[in-house]
């Protein structure tokens, strides 16, 4: 596996948190995905070996939990809450705005390669609906106007990198 030395270190550390190695499956998947961007076939085999499991034990976990993905996505991940409280205040409109801004469809990577827009279920911030989780940062009260502002910000950050 091609991972940062720091990731390997964290992997070895986290395994010590549990009396049974298998418990480290989710933590390892998170660490690998954060480092490599997604869970490859090799990653499944490597984690299985590391935890002394069968590859299927790891694969069944990857396919069960929505957060694990088996292919790369855009550089930024925009997750719009789809659930009732957010929908009551325009969550679907927010999602549509992001899709339009980046000319993309749900779950696909935008043509510019910069973002993937997804719907997710309740993010436990229903009082400040509609909410959007972008990478690891929660944005609150994101109506269409705010969604356009955020999109512009993402585009300008992308431009600055080039």
């Amino acid at each position: 596996m091609n991972l940062k030395p720091e990731t390997f270190q964290r992997i070895d550390e986290v395994i010590t948190h549990y009396p049974v190695k298998r418990s480290a499956t989710l933590p390892l998947l998170h660490l690998v995905q954060e480092d490599a961007g997604y869970i490859s076939e090799d990653a499944v085999l490597w984690i299985a070996q590391k935890l002394e499991l069968q590859p299927i034990n790891v694969l069944e976990v990857v396919t069960f939990y929505p957060m694990f993905r088996r292919a790369p996505i855009g550089r930024r991940h925009i997750k719009v809450c789809r659930t009732l409280s957010c929908a009551l205040l325009g969550g679907y409109k927010t999602c549509e705005t992001f899709r339009d801004e980046f000319k993309t469809t749900l779950g696909a990577t935008s043509p510019c390669g910069e973002v993937t827009v997804d719907f997710v279920e309740c993010l436990a911030s229903c009082g400040t609906a509609p909410v959007v989780l972008i990478d690891e940062v929660l944005h609150e009260k994101v109506d269409a106007t705010k969604a356009r502002q955020i999109s512009a910000q993402i585009r300008s950050e992308a431009a600055a990198r080039k």
Partner: peptide, 11 residues
Amino acid sequence: DESEPGTFKDR
């Protein structure tokens, strides 16, 4: 896990 829709206290 605070995942029941409508609940936002534990976070």
